[in-house]
Design a protein around this nucleic acid. Structure first.
Length: 822
RNA sequence: GCCGGGAUGGCGGAAUUGGCAGACGCCCGGGACUUAAAAUCCCGUGGGUAGUAAUACCCGUACCGGUUCGACCCCGGUUCCCGGCACCA
């Protein structure tokens, strides 16, 4: 009789019910407040892992809760289905990438459905399907027309293993983000999206994102890397062009002792004097043997080489030598710097090595620092010296004053530099969106006519895994006529980075079947923004930055009202096993399919939500899963037992009775769960523990004399309502058995009885000198004074304070009284 | 180096943001039911000292110090761990 519940048949039953009755289908309803909850869509690898289960369980609880709260919830799912693994399968065992991908999608969709997730599958999106990538191409053309897409030859990141170029964001510690192979450089002509035009807005608007974790905002700020300073021009003797440098320390311009250019700086070739040529060549040779990681290492010794020229400091007319050096990078600022050894640690090291002047221009005002013989660069705040009319100023003020002065002299101006680079989106791979551009010898790069979209991926290609894009092997793809002049022309052979696809999928969900436009305005504007976005922190800069950029551009193109995509963001922690990430090589993978088979989806969901707060890493525990399973069986049995008893409502709700206690607990629980579910709190683990306490209390009450079965039934009803978002199959089943006709998904989230939470008497704590000594029950509505009086009059308290002088009494109504004695 | 986050029992984690530290769960121990086991139910469970015992007292939220009647929480300093950025001028 104390049987375990049959989750197999229950879960199957309700999954069928939801599907047959279109329970999760949503349509726009202007009279209802909407709620858009979204989980990051997966790459269809074919197999669900625990990270997915966690991600979608969180989203599903939010979606189901918000629906019960009466909001019009949109909760879609789709597939980030372009990408390398499909192509690698093609290279390895001749699979067709499209077939391979669709098989994987079918398998994963089956697994997703077995979790009982509340998706509106009518909105399903696949980025690899023509009906989607047609619009990705269309957006690219809009970007191009706005001057936000351009092709440029540049030294780019090349992954030799993936045989393609990578964006800066995809290079982590000098290695490929996907396959961890060290990334090299290649000189290639590639397509870029001009994300740098949006650097300032992307930075500023982070302040608007109150519902984002600080961690992610900080990461984006670091990545965008804004720094304020000045650009200044230095004349070079015997050279007609001026040398442009960027500095954040214009205040130190009187302390410049040399100029340094990046070795790749375009002026270098022209500037090197014949006497220095040999030495410069030697230096360049040495640099060539360094890979990118070493070249950028902070520990690399600072080395350089004099190139035979002198520059003139426009502020003091001083003649200073011009060098090239390994620590100056061509792709930041102007690729040239002024060297101020006294106030920059790198410059200091460089000056020491080459015997350059070290001229202090900021006085620390600290007698312990010997300005004539600095042992280190002084980089903190101080007073200006050796700087002509600026002497005596605080150096922070001098930054502004000297910049203004430079402007007067016409040798410089305020300047802001970003670390962010433009987004390189060309990929030399097959399984991606063809870039809809055509090269004509006469017209240059022109976009394909919009009515010709989509430009379909050709099927007659070979997968060699080597060299150029597989599209080049197609006999049908490359040759076209120029859309402008009609002459023979060539198609672009590269495809787009898949991060382009995922930069707008959340917009497509709002109108996924539209074949006239990417989405209808009224639909996208009804549903956007995403109210709650949930996914892994690994996308903190990649996807989340690109998606913000895309949304802003589409906003500027007047396609969407929103200019930020995601109002609230939850970055969920990883699922670990025995303290480390689940992986094939470690052999510690727990398969969701097996867990669902053994315990059911409801148990898996409950455990994963209960074991840790969602933003923290979660260590998988088999014993913990058992515990969650035990709890669900406990609830199941409780509800069965209550149903077996005849309901005889009497409704005793006084605080001092057992029934009153239960009624109080019920309302407290509803309040706690409700509070924990509100946006931004994500207290799923504590919400569940509150429900567990209620269940314990119901068990206790059930065994008391004269237990009121009407009250128990009432409790069971509400227990099921608040539990249902977490364990939806069991929720539906119990709800039905409790005699309700409608799906629990459509029921209203229960309110709690505020009055029931106000007790007539409360237990308060009595402290003597801050230490807990005694407890007593008092009326809950006592004032401070009444409370102190009553406590001091208490017999036990008198005993505790006997023979001591009461110096002070602090009373906090409803909480405690602290008696300070001497 | 700069920035962000963190450290609480044997374990995962609670604590309405200054008011009973350790909720809830796991593990472990004891008991009930059972011929027995499983399942289930009940009880105990931070450490220490004293006591046959009810109990009493002491210590305890990484470390040192401060503010306060009162600190896991606020302030100053230190250590360690995780994440991001980094020869970025």
């Amino acid at each position: 009789m104390a049987d375990r519940y049959d989750f197999h048949s229950i879960e199957e039953k309700w999954q069928e019910y939801w599907e047959e009755h279109d329970v999760f289908k949503t349509v726009e309803d202007p009279d209802k407040e909407k709620y858009y909850v979204l989980e990051m869509f997966p790459y269809p690898s074919g197999k669900l892992h625990m990270g997915h289960v966690r991600n979608y369980s969180i989203g599903d609880v939010v979606a189901r809760y918000m629906n019960m709260k009466g909001l019009n919830v949109i909760h879609p799912m789709g597939w980030d289905s372009f990408g390398l693994p499909a192509e690698n399968a093609a290279i390895k065992n001749g699979a067709r990438p499209d077939v391979w991908t669709h098989e994987n999608i079918a398998e994963m969709k089956k697994q997703l459905k077995s979790l009982g997730l509340s998706y509106d599958w009518d909105r399903e999106v696949m980025t690899c399907r023509e009906d989607y990538y047609r619009w990705t191409q269309w957006f690219f053309i809009q970007f191009f027309k706005k001057g936000l897409a351009y092709k440029k030859k540049n030294a780019v990141n090349w992954c030799p293993s993936c045989q393609t170029v990578l964006a800066n964001e995809q290079v982590v510690d000098g290695k490929c983000e996907r396959c961890k192979t060290p990334v090299g450089k290649k000189e290639l002509s590639q397509w870029y999206l001009k994300i740098t035009d949006y650097a300032q807005r992307l930075l500023d608007d982070l302040d608007k994102l109150e519902g984002w974790p600080d961690k992610v905002k900080t990461m984006q700020r670091n990545w965008i890397g804004r720094s304020v300073g000045a650009e200044m021009q230095f004349e070079i003797e015997g050279f007609d062009k001026k040398l442009d440098i960027f500095t954040t320390r214009p205040d130190t311009v009187f302390g410049v002792s040399c100029m340094v250019l990046a070795p790749e700086h375009p002026y270098v070739k022209e500037l090197v004097t014949p006497e220095c040529q040999a030495e410069v060549d030697q230096f360049m040779d040495k640099l060539q043997y360094l890979n990118d990681i070493d070249r950028n290492s902070t520990t690399l010794e600072k080395e350089g080489c004099f190139i035979g020229r002198y520059a003139i400091n426009p502020f003091n007319g001083k003649k200073i030598p011009v060098y090239i050096a390994n620590y100056v990078l061509m792709d930041y600022g102007t690729g040239a710097i002024m060297v101020v050894p006294a106030h920059d640690t790198r410059d200091f090291a460089f000056a020491k090595k080459y015997g350059l002047d070290i001229i202090p221009v900021v006085d620390p005002g600290n007698p312990e620092i010997d300005l004539e013989n600095l042992e280190d660069a002084f980089v903190a705040e101080g007073t200006m010296i050796n700087s002509g009319k600026f002497d005596g100023l605080n150096n922070k003020e001098a930054i502004e004053k000297i910049t203004e002065y430079a402007e007067e002299l016409g040798v410089g101006k305020k300047s802001i530099n970003f670390r962010l680079r433009d987004w390189l989106i060309s990929r030399q791979r097959y399984w991606g969106v063809p870039i809809p551009m055509i090269y004509c010898d006469d017209c240059g790069w022109v976009p394909e006519k919009e009515e010709n979209l989509p430009i379909l991926l050709p099927k007659d290609v070979e997968f060699t895994g080597k060299g150029q894009s597989p599209l080049t092997t197609s006999k049908t793809f490359g040759d076209v006529v120029c859309p402008v002049c009609g002459k023979p022309a060539k198609r672009e052979m590269d495809t787009m980075d898949t991060f382009v696809d995922s930069s707008w999928y959340f917009l497509r969900y709002t109108d996924a079947r539209n074949d006239q436009e990417p989405f209808a305005k009224e639909k996208v504007n009804y549903w956007m923004n995403v109210d709650q976005y949930i996914g892994g922190v690994e996308h903190a800069i990649l996807h989340l930055l690109y998606a913000r950029f895309f949304t802003k551009v589409l906003h500027d193109l007047d396609l969407v009202e929103a200019d930020e995509p995601f109002a609230n963001l939850l970055t969920q922690g990883m699922v670990l096993k025995d303290g480390s990430k689940m992986s094939k090589s470690v052999g510690n993978i727990v398969s969701p399919v097996e867990i669902i088979e053994k315990y059911g989806a409801d148990t898996a969901r409950l455990f994963i939500l209960f074991a840790a707060p969602p933003d923290r890493d979660l260590d998988w525990s088999d014993a913990g899963v058992e515990g969650s399973y035990r709890f669900l069986n406990r609830v199941w049995r409780l509800v069965q037992e209550i149903l077996e008893k005849e309901a005889d409502a009497s409704g005793a709700k006084e605080n001092d009775t057992e029934a009153g206690k239960l009624y109080f607990q019920l309302n407290k629980t509803i309040k706690r769960v409700t509070d924990n579910m509100s946006t931004g709190r994500f207290g799923f683990n504590t919400a569940i523990s509150a429900i567990m306490e209620l269940v314990n209390e119901m068990y206790r009450y059930k065994e008391t004399e004269h237990a009121d079965s009407g009250l128990l039934k009432d409790c069971a009803d509400r227990l099921v309502l608040i539990l249902a978002p977490f364990v939806p199959h069991l929720g539906e089943e119990m709800w039905q058995r409790l005699g309700h006709e409608q799906s629990v998904y459509f029921e209203k989230w229960p309110d709690y009885d505020e009055e029931a939470l106000v007790l007539d008497t409360v237990e308060i704590v009595v402290q003597i000198n801050g230490k807990l000594k005694h407890r007593m029950h008092v009326a809950s509505d006592l004032s401070r004074e009444e409370l102190s009086e009553q406590v001091l009059a208490d017999e036990a308290v008198q005993e505790l304070t006997a023979g001591k002088t009461v110096k002070k009494v602090i009373a906090v109504p409803g909480k405690l009284v602290n008696i300070v004695v001497a």
